[in-house]
Write a protein that binds this DNA or RNA. Structure first.
Length: 587
RNA sequence: GGGCGUGUAGCAUAGCUGGAUAAUGCACCGGCCUCCUAAGCCGGGGAUCGCGGGUUCGAAUCCUGCCACGUCCGCCA
């Protein structure tokens, strides 16, 4: 609880000095109490034992005795060698209700721009759940950075060249509808629900081409196909405009379909940058020339070029190839050019990448250093798997996000109909959509990115406690009270902090007080799950407040309770939005 | 084989820049709607923190060895 620490650190430092604790070691060991019942800020006194020559428990007691009553503190306790500080709820309430207080101001404002690149999925088929972690994680980071007060640009790097688009373009140009149906005869038709969506329609061409390529591997027909695709891919890598245009025509409708799905989840981008840009403008070629001059540079027999990053501390395979024998660039080389360009655009770079990119990100980072550039910050995540194994668009064992959202919406609608029989269809539809998309986001964002994740329908569709609806529900309660306040008699006087404070109120004030701390940590450490879990805490605390603190008594507003409820409603609204959850007013 | 990541109640997770009796949800058991939305609230049981060593006043947390799972080790993207 930073606000408490800031308020009392002067007193605390003096008290510590009075028992012989000098220096600023205490600033490094002081922190939030582990358990709320222990206090708000805790100082373990064990490290001072040697310095002072007394046992920790005694030091804690002596410091506690030396702390004179501070208005921000209701209690100073020494237990088990800890000094525990408990915030004075009345003081907290005054701070938190102040419009210029900790809840009113941005938490980590920075000059300059943060460029967050995320999703960047190959536009070869509908967005599936395996890709969802990147998009949801990335978008949540974008939102939380903005909530904390930073300027952010969200960017999608479009892979508009290379093999995957090449295969799609080849299929669209060479396969008839009948060819596709024949190649995919064992997979059934496209779901009629999505027949109008170009990503679902076109992915069948991609899948058919992959099936045909693998069936005809080694045959003359198969080799002709490989040659045709290879020629296009090669041309794209040399910046051939006609081929790049053909590729773009092939993938654009697919990308639009994917973006439509993402839009439903509240995910959008400020900019799209095409990979081919850096081939066409010559920056890739310039980088390859520059790399050839480095002392860690090497060349293979066929003219392919690499950097020996072992000399820069890389373990495992140390050769990083950036140029083929035929002189064309590789994906990672283009990524280098992309990053150099990104550094001209922003002051801070953040990438969201799957764990399969760990090595490459390391190689790109080390190479950027060789070029005199900084390394971007990266958030890695583990893949979402199906119980049957890894998802793959090519093999067709995927759960499409469109299907998941429809299913989640249908389940949500069942719940709404059951709980609120009086609602009209349009309202049920809007609530179900909000609950479904929020629940899907929350289920993914609440777990730490590096943790493995297996997708199950049961879990994805669970709306139980600890999920988005729980947090959203607390907000609707606050909204309900807010509406009632408009009709109630206003309070006679302003909020008074002298009266009794029920547990539910005290707990809510303490969770609110910690809100800026959690947001700052989540943003600085790129850990949105910390903020997600905190929002559950906040919802829980609001429910306790709701239980203990009537806001309207006999038709008249209770000044303090009303003010706290309104403040909590604002914080809930902002926090839910920061996670990409939809803050409904009724549900 | 090598690099990197993960391993915490039946399940899913938090805690990992060392600090208190390891926290939360689901599931399980019991209670609460003449009272601001019960998608809620209150109470209860449940853990050799993967295994073995080491460092420390103190280890889920740091070091080390082993085991399991994931991922990479393409002149693919």
């Amino acid at each position: 609880m930073q606000i408490l620490l800031d308020a009392v650190s002067g007193d605390l430092e003096a008290a510590l000095a009075s028992v012989g604790v000098e220096g600023d070691l205490w600033r490094r060991v002081i922190g939030p109490a582990r358990e709320r019942k222990e206090g708000d800020v805790a100082l373990p006194c064990f490290p001072f034992a040697k310095m002072v020559g007394r046992p920790p428990a005694e030091i804690a007691e002596a410091v506690a005795a030396a702390m004179d009553g501070h208005e921000a503190l209701s209690e100073v306790r020494a237990t088990n060698g800890y000094l525990n500080l408990v915030a004075n709820p009345a003081w907290l309430a005054a701070q938190l209700l102040d419009d210029d207080g900790p809840l009113g101001a941005p938490v980590a404002p920075e000059d300059g721009l943060v460029l967050i690149e995320h999703t960047s999925a190959n536009p070869n088929g509908p967005f599936h759940v395996g890709r969802a972690r990147n998009a949801i994680l990335g978008d949540t980071l974008v939102r939380l950075n903005r909530l904390a007060g930073r300027n952010v640009r969200a960017e999608y790097y479009v892979d508009d060249m290379g093999k995957q688009v090449g295969v799609l373009a080849w299929a669209l140009a060479n396969l008839s509808e009948a060819d596709v149906a024949a190649a995919l005869s064992d997979r059934g038709d496209v779901d009629s629900t999505w027949a109008h969506k170009p990503d679902h329609a076109r992915v069948r061409w991609y899948q058919a081409a992959q099936a045909i390529r693998s069936a005809q591997e080694g045959t003359p027909e198969g080799e002709a196909i490989e040659k045709a695709i290879g020629t296009m891919v090669h041309a794209s890598e040399h910046g051939d405009e006609a081929v790049l245009e053909a590729f773009e025509a092939a993938y654009t409708p697919v990308l639009e379909g994917m973006l439509e799905t993402l839009g439903r989840l509240g995910i959008s981008f400020d900019a799209f940058t095409k990979e081919s840009t850096f081939v066409v403008d010559g920056s890739v070629a310039a980088i390859m020339d520059r790399l050839a001059t480095l002392d860690i540079h090497g060349e293979a027999d066929n003219g392919a070029r690499f950097l020996d990053l072992g000399q820069r501390g890389l373990k495992g395979k140390t050769e990083f190839f950036y140029r083929r024998g035929d002189g064309s660039s590789l994906y990672a080389t283009r990524d280098l050019a992309y990053h150099r360009w990104k550094w001209t655009q922003a002051d801070r770079l953040l990438n969201v990448l799957g764990e399969d990119h760990r090595l490459q990100a390391k190689q790109v980072g080390l190479t950027l250093n060789e070029l005199g550039e900084s390394t971007p910050e990266v958030v890695f995540y583990s893949f979402i798997k199906l119980p049957e194994g890894k998802m793959s668009t090519r093999r067709g064992n995927v759960v499409f996000m469109d299907d998941l959202l429809e299913e989640a919406k249908a389940q949500a609608a069942t719940v709404v109909r059951d709980l609120r029989p009086e609602y009209e269809e349009a309202q049920i539809d809007a609530i179900s959509e909000a609950v479904a998309t929020s629940a899907v986001r929350f289920n993914i964002i609440k777990v730490s990115p590096e943790k493995g994740f297996t997708f199950t329908w049961e879990e994805a569709l669970s709306f139980e406690g600890g999920s988005a609806p729980f947090a959203m529900y607390a907000h609707t309660r606050a909204c309900s009270i807010s509406r009632k306040l408009e009709e109630a008699e206003p309070a006679v006087e302003g909020p008074s902090f002298d009266g009794p404070m029920p547990d539910g109120l005290v707990d809510l004030l303490r969770v609110l007080a910690v809100h800026p701390d959690v947001l700052r940590n989540a943003v600085q450490q790129h850990k949105p799950h910390l903020f997600a879990l905190h929002m559950l805490d906040l919802a829980n605390a609001y429910n306790g407040f709701y239980r203990d603190c009537p806001v309207i008594v006999k038709g008249r507003a209770h000044a303090l309770h009303a003010a706290v409820s309104e403040r909590a409603r604002e914080v809930l609204h902002a926090g839910l939005t920061g996670l990409g959850l939809v803050p409904l007013e009724r549900m």
